[in-house]
Design a protein around this nucleic acid. Sequence first.
DNA 1: AAAAAGCTGTTGTGAATACAACGAAATGAG
DNA 2: CTCATTTCGTTGTATTCACAACAGCTTTTT
Lengths: 217, 217
Amino acid sequence: MKKIFDIIKTNQLFDGINIDDYSAMSDCLGAKIKTYLKNDIIILSGDRIDNVGIVTRGSVRIFKEDWGGNQTILADIPTSGIFGEVFACAGIKVSPVTVSACSDCEILYLDFDKVSKPCCKSCSFHLSLIENMLKIIARKNLMLNQKIEILSKRTLREKLLCYFDYQRNNSAKFTISFNREQLASYLCANRSVVSAELSKMQDDGLILYSKNTFEIL
Amino acid sequence: MKKIFDIIKTNQLFDGINIDDYSAMSDCLGAKIKTYLKNDIIILSGDRIDNVGIVTRGSVRIFKEDWGGNQTILADIPTSGIFGEVFACAGIKVSPVTVSACSDCEILYLDFDKVSKPCCKSCSFHLSLIENMLKIIARKNLMLNQKIEILSKRTLREKLLCYFDYQRNNSAKFTISFNREQLASYLCANRSVVSAELSKMQDDGLILYSKNTFEIL
DNA sequence: AAAAAGCTGTTGTGAATACAACGAAATGAG
DNA sequence: CTCATTTCGTTGTATTCACAACAGCTTTTT
C-alpha cells in the first residue's frame, strides 16, 4: 500500500492533494485495485466504463479494432499514467477502445463520477482533483492539436519541419526520443521514406543530423 | 443584457446553472464584454491570455501563422461558441494563435482562473462551471482523436471510409454537412482528388452517393 | 429569362509516397 | 571477440496524390 502512495504522489492528477486524504478519497471515490497478467484484456471495446484507471505497476496498451479486424495502437500508458479519463469526463459510457496489459500490471480505479458529488466528510480534495483533471485533459488537447497540425501538412518535408519546430525549444540543436520507426509511425509515413527525406533535407542544407540529434540551419 | 442571457442559456458551459446566478457570476468571474468590428484582431499570437471568450454576437476565426507567414485556419467559432478555454485550462499564458473577427461581434470574457477560487458569496455555480468545462474539453478531445484516426490512414479511400464510419450512426444512409471543398479540407486532401476517389469507390461498388447523401454498401 | 457565381466531376501530368529488398553501421548477448 | 539483432540509409518500382484546366450542372442574382 505504501508503494501506491509513491505512485500517486508522482501523478499529476493528485497535484496539491495531501496524501493524508488518500483514505478518505479511497472511501468516497470507490477506489479499487485490480491486478492483471500480461496480455490480459482490461477493457474490451463495448464494455461499460465508469472509471478512471491509474497504472500503479506495469503498463497497458490502448488500441482500436477496425471493421476489418486490424488493430491500431492509440497509446501505451506507462506506470503512473492514467487512462479512460477522457471517456469518463465526456460522459461516454461504452468504451470505443480496447485496453490490454503489456505486462503484469496493477490498476487503481477511481469512480470519477463521484468526484463532483459532495460527500459525507469534508473532502477538500474534490475540487483539486477535478481541476487537475481539467489541466491534464486540456494539455492532452494541446498535444492532439499539435499532431493534427503536423499531419495536416501536405508533404513529408513540411511534416518533419513542423514536428522539429515543436521539438526544439527555440534552440537550433535538439534530440528527439523517437527512433526512425517510431518517428515514421508518429508522422503516419513510411520509415524508409522518412530516412530518405531526412537525407535530402540535409543535402539541401536545411538540417544537420546524426542519429537522433538534429540541428536546424 | 437580456440577449446575453439568451446566448448564455444555450451554451453548454452554463448547463445546469440557474441564470439568476448570472449577476453573482459576473461579479466574481470578472465578466467583461467587448465589441469588435469585422477583421479586428481580437487576440494576437503572443498576447497574454487569462480569459475564456464566449461569442455572444457574430463569429470569430482562430488561425495560426507559420514561420513563412502563411495562415492556417484552425477553427471558426460561431455565435454562442467559446474559445481560449483549452489554453486557460492548460495554464498556457501566451497565445500561440491569433483570433480575428469574421464579422462585427461581441465577446463575453470570463476570467477562468477565478472559477476555482472560493469567492466571497456562496457561489454554487463554481462546481457546475468547472464540470461543464471538463465535459466540453473532453468531448473536444474525442473529436480531435477522431480526426487523427482519419488522418492516420494512408490512402484517401481509407480516410473517406473511416470518416463515413464516424458520420453514419450504424445506418447505411446518411448526409454530411460538408461540401466537397470542405470535406477535402477536413481530410487534408485535394478537392478534385476527393471527387475522383468518390467516383472510383462508387464504381467499385463500395458506396452510392448523390450530392451530400451517401450510402455504404 | 439571362447572366453570374458556385459546386461537382473528369482528365492529364508531374510530384510525392508506399512498399520491398538490400547492405552498412550500430548495438547487444554469449 | 563473434555472432545475432536492430537500426538506418539507399534504391527501384508501382501506387497515390497534388495541381491545373475544363466542362456540366445547380443555385443565385439581376
